[in-house]
Amino acid sequence: MTLTFEVDPAVDPALRDGVLALWADVTNAGGAVGFVSPITPDEIRPALVRHLVAMTEGRTRLLVGRDGDGEVAATAFFTFNTHPLMGHWVWLYTVMVHPRHQGKGYGLDLMAAVERAARTADGFAAIEAIRLTCRGGLGLEGFYARAGYKEVGRIPGAIRVAPGDDRDDVVMLLPLT
């Protein structure tokens, strides 16, 4: 079974609830997606609402991956730069694959879909690179490197997971040109 990817899916209650459940499940399994475990979908809801508002304003786009049952199994949010000197690259946020699907190659499938979308989807014509940050100490740099991203910066101790547990904020870049 593979995932089916879609850029800019219709946002309805099923998608909203699917993304919330995915985000909570990924976080509670130890994923580094903006929160720490334990967390509930209700605690994540304000962050998702911010993403959805940015989508309605045209500042953010969603790539969703669905499994064979049609359930939300993966996501990545693209955020366009509003700074006039940085409009040629996008930020990638909230990159997730559901824990039940991890270890099947779906993470690299998601990253390939991200790259395809940035190269071919309407509205991405001027995009020359994708930039993301990841939490150090989890091996994520290696995963993104396998997807073609290069580490271009690191801010030591910028992410405080818990008192006494500071992690590096690692900046990764994928040139598209």
Rank of each mutant, 00 (worst) to 15 (best):
G136N: 12
G68F: 01
A145W: 06
M111N: 05
L92Y: 00
G136W: 02
A118P: 02
A112V: 01
R100N: 05
I39C: 03
V90W: 02
V72M: 04
L92A: 00
A32E: 14
R119W: 07
G136M: 07
R100Q: 03
D25I: 08
Y106Q: 05
V72G: 09
V36Q: 15
R146A: 12
I44N: 04
G142P: 11
L132A: 09
P156L: 07
L110D: 13
A118F: 02
M86A: 15
V53S: 05
D25C: 14
N81G: 14
T60N: 06
D67N: 13
I127E: 00
A32Y: 01
I130V: 10
T75D: 06
V90R: 02
G123P: 14
H88K: 06
A147H: 08
P84C: 10
H83I: 15
E43V: 01
F124P: 03
E141Y: 05
T56Q: 15
E43P: 06
G139C: 13
R131Q: 14
A29F: 15
F35Q: 13
R119N: 02
D25G: 08
T40F: 08
A117Y: 02
F77R: 00
L110Q: 12
V97H: 06
G70M: 11
R135P: 05
Y93W: 14
D122P: 05
I130A: 00
G30S: 03
L140C: 12
G142V: 11
G103R: 12
W89R: 13
L85T: 15
G153V: 06
E71R: 13
T79H: 11
M55G: 08
F77M: 07
A47N: 15
M86Q: 10
A73N: 09
G142W: 15
F77E: 11
E57T: 07
H51F: 10
P84A: 04
R50H: 09
D69H: 06
T56D: 11
E57V: 00
F124Q: 05
G148S: 01
L85W: 08
A29I: 00
V26E: 10
H83Q: 15
T40H: 06
T60D: 14
L132D: 00
R45V: 04
L140F: 05
P46V: 01
R119I: 05
V90L: 03
L138P: 14
H83W: 06
V33I: 00
A32K: 09
A121C: 02
F143C: 07
I39L: 12
A24Y: 10
T94H: 03
W91A: 11
D69E: 12
F77Q: 00
R59D: 12
G148R: 13
A113N: 09
N28Y: 12
G30W: 05
T75F: 04
A121R: 03
G58F: 00
G31L: 13
V36W: 08
Y149T: 15
G68K: 07
E57S: 04
L85D: 04
Y106I: 15
G105T: 00
F35C: 10
V26C: 14
E151L: 13
D109Y: 14
A145N: 10
G139Y: 00
A32R: 13
D42W: 07
A47E: 14
M111F: 08
V95T: 02
P41R: 06
G107I: 07
F143R: 13
R66L: 09
L132R: 03
V53M: 14
D42G: 04
E141Q: 06
A126P: 07
